[in-house]
Computed example of a mutant assay.
Amino acid sequence: MTTGTNENAIRTGDFTLVRDGFGRLVLTGADGVAHEGVMPVRAFPISSPDTGLAIMSADGHELAWVDDRAALPADLAALIAEELSGREFMPEIRAIVSVSSYMTPSTWSVATDRGGVSFVLSGEEHIRRLAGGMLLIADSHGVHFLIRDPKALDRASRKILDRFL
C-alpha cells in the first residue's frame, strides 16, 4: 500500500492523489486500488500545456485523464504542477546573445527564463518549427530550448536566428 497519510490526500471525483513518505505520488482510483510512483504527463506540453494530462503508472499505463487542469481543485493542480516542473525542463530563450559561428556546429550564448546559458547547436536540422510559429532548438546534449515567439525577440537576436533558418 502507501506510506503517505490520507489527511494530505487531494481528492477529485475519480481519484485521490497524495505524496508518500518517499516523495513519490500515489494515485488511488475510485476502485480503491493504490498505484505508487505515478507521474503526470502532458499530452501537448508546448502547444497546449494546461489541457490533456494523463496520470501514468510507473510501468507506463494511463490510470487517469484530466481534460483541463484548470478544472481541478487548486491544491491538486498545484501538486501536479510541482511534479511536472520537476521532470520537465525546457528553458525559453528570451535573447540570443552571440553565436561562435554561422556554420554548425556552433556555440550559442543565450538568455533564457532560467538565466544565461551556452550550448552547442550541432546542425540546422536541430531547429524545428512548431505550430503557431514557435521554434524548438535541441542542443548537442539533447536539452530542448523553446522560442515561443521569434518575432518578439530583439532585432539582434532575430538577425542571428534568421541566418540559421
Rank of each mutant, 00 (worst) to 15 (best):
M1H: 10
M1L: 13
M1D: 12
T2P: 03
T3A: 10
T3K: 09
N6D: 15
D20C: 06
F22E: 15
R24H: 14
L27H: 05
A30W: 05
G32I: 05
G32V: 04
A43W: 07
D50M: 13
L53Q: 00
L53Y: 00
A54E: 13
S57W: 03
D59W: 02
D59Q: 13
G60I: 05
H61I: 12
H61V: 14
L63W: 07
L63T: 08
W65R: 14
D67P: 02
D67H: 14
A70V: 02
P73V: 07
P73H: 12
A74Q: 09
I80S: 04
E83Y: 01
R87A: 06
F89R: 15
I93C: 04
R94V: 05
R94C: 07
I96E: 10
S98L: 07
M103R: 15
S106N: 08
V110M: 08
V110G: 04
T112F: 10
V117I: 13
V120Y: 03
V120S: 03
V120F: 03
I127V: 13
R128P: 00
L135W: 03
L136R: 13
D139H: 09
D139P: 04
S140T: 07
H144D: 10
L146H: 01
I147C: 04
R148T: 09
D149R: 11
P150S: 05
R163P: 02
L165V: 12
